Computed example of a mutant assay.
Amino acid sequence: MNRILVTGAKGQLGSELQVLSKDYSQFEWIFTDREELDLCDLDHLTSEIARINPQIIINCAAHTAVDRAETEIELSDILNHKAIAVMAKWSHANGCKLIHVSTDYVFDGTAETALTENAATNPINIYGVTKLAGENACLQENPNSIIIRTSWVYSSFGANFVKTMSKLMQERDTLNVVNDQIGSPTYAADLAQAIMDILTHEQWQAGIYHFSNEGEISWYEFALAIKELGNFDCEISGIPASNYPTPAKRPQFSLLDKSKIKNTFGVVVPDYKESLRKCMKLLRSE
């Protein structure tokens, strides 16, 4: 029985994989978070992975606090880059399959059409810089690995835009949301399913893949969809990102082209609103 090591098990994607794991009992699942596997402890990381001895690693761990990363540079570099190099090196030496999750923030946001896996990378914040360094280390140390870039992740688990907006719309009469950053959200449950589709596909095809839900929207339009599906009575106005300065710059356009993952592994990519509806139904039932 192949043993799967999942890092970052308490995050949004890790939590969704825990839910999904019940449908994949042909695997032995080992879910780890900081307490069970400290990715910052680079000196002992190799021996800790060797102790678990997985045949598959799904790396969901990352330093994802984009604004804090601007000052927590060393921590970002360890979690998003150096730890990946260690995992990739071990997996390559031990014939272990590695799926590493990356981000649309490796792009600068100046594109005007959906970004393919071959589009030029040029990150504009520390989070993006360290995630790109992690991608490069992953491919260098283990050319047989799979990297999945995703964007705007949300879930019924953890803190995210959908949960924050749902809460604010119940507390406030008006909200301002950025309307000039374009992309597509990703329901973490859909990404978890895509990962399992890859792992159970008859052929392992190494390389970089893009995954997010279908749709091309702004954060403002995302908020409007949350308002509609949640039946909230809150007035929402669109504002330019320049009116809402943050420590880290965000890409203005980071819509991902999903053709490669669909064509290679037969992954089904749901429409963003269909997935948002599922997630909000779960949140209402909690």
Score class of each variant (00 low, 15 high):
Met169His: 03
Ser47His: 05
Gln193Asp: 09
Phe253Gln: 01
Ile58Gly: 09
Asn2Ser: 15
Ala225Glu: 15
Ser212Gly: 02
Glu36Met: 13
Lys227Ser: 12
Lys131Glu: 03
Ser47Leu: 03
Ala159Tyr: 11
Met87Glu: 12
Gly11Tyr: 13
Ile58Ser: 08
Arg51Ile: 11
Leu115Arg: 10
Glu35Leu: 10
Pro185Arg: 08
Gly158Leu: 06
Glu202Arg: 09
Leu175Gly: 10
Ile217Gln: 10
Lys249Met: 14
Lys227Asp: 06
Arg250Lys: 13
Val267Gln: 14
Leu283Cys: 08
Lys167Ala: 06
Gly207Cys: 09
Ile49Asn: 01
Ile198Gln: 07
Asn142Trp: 11
His81Lys: 04
Arg277Pro: 00
Glu135Tyr: 04
His201Arg: 08
Leu139Asp: 06
Arg284Val: 01
Pro143Gln: 13
Pro123Gln: 03
Gln203Glu: 14
Ile4Gly: 06
Arg51Cys: 13
Thr164Lys: 06
Thr103Tyr: 07
Leu132Gly: 01
Asp77Val: 00
Met169Glu: 04
His100Lys: 04
Ala241Pro: 04
Phe232Pro: 02
Gln170Met: 04
Val153Lys: 14
Ile226His: 10
Lys249Gln: 14
Lys249Asn: 15
Asp190His: 15
Leu199His: 03
Gly207His: 13
Tyr127Glu: 07
Lys278Phe: 03
Val19Phe: 03
Gln18Arg: 14
Lys97Ala: 10
Phe253Asn: 02
Gln12Trp: 08
Ile148Lys: 08
Val177Gln: 10
Ser155Trp: 00
Cys138Leu: 03
Ala50Leu: 04
Ser218Gln: 05
Phe211Val: 10
Thr264Gln: 05
His44Ser: 15
Thr71Asp: 00
Gln140Phe: 14
Gln252Ala: 06
Pro247His: 08
Glu286Ala: 07
His63Phe: 15
Phe211Glu: 08
His63Ala: 08
Ser21Glu: 02
Gly183Trp: 09
Glu221Val: 05
Asn53Val: 02
Ile73Arg: 12
Arg172Val: 01
Gly8Asn: 12
Met1Cys: 10
Ala137Leu: 13
Asn231Thr: 11
Asn263Leu: 09
Pro240Thr: 07
Trp219Asn: 12
Cys60Arg: 13
Leu20Gln: 07
Ile198Cys: 05
Gly207Trp: 15
Phe157Val: 00
Tyr154Pro: 02
Phe157Ser: 05
Arg3Asp: 14
Ser76Asn: 03
Ala241Met: 12
Ile124Cys: 00
Lys278Asp: 06
Asn125Trp: 02
Gln140Leu: 15
Phe232Thr: 05
Asn136Gln: 15
Glu286His: 11
Asn243His: 14
Ile49Cys: 01
Glu214Trp: 07
Gly266Glu: 06
Gln140Met: 14
Glu74Arg: 01
Lys10Gly: 01
Arg51Glu: 13
Glu214Tyr: 13
Glu202Gln: 14
Thr174Ile: 00
Ile198Trp: 03
Gly215Trp: 12
Gly266Ala: 12
Arg284His: 04
Asp197Arg: 02
Ser151Gly: 12
Gly134Pro: 05
Glu286Tyr: 12
Glu16Gln: 08
Asp173Thr: 14
Tyr272Val: 01
Lys249Gly: 09
Ser91Asp: 04
Lys262Ile: 06
Ala194Met: 08
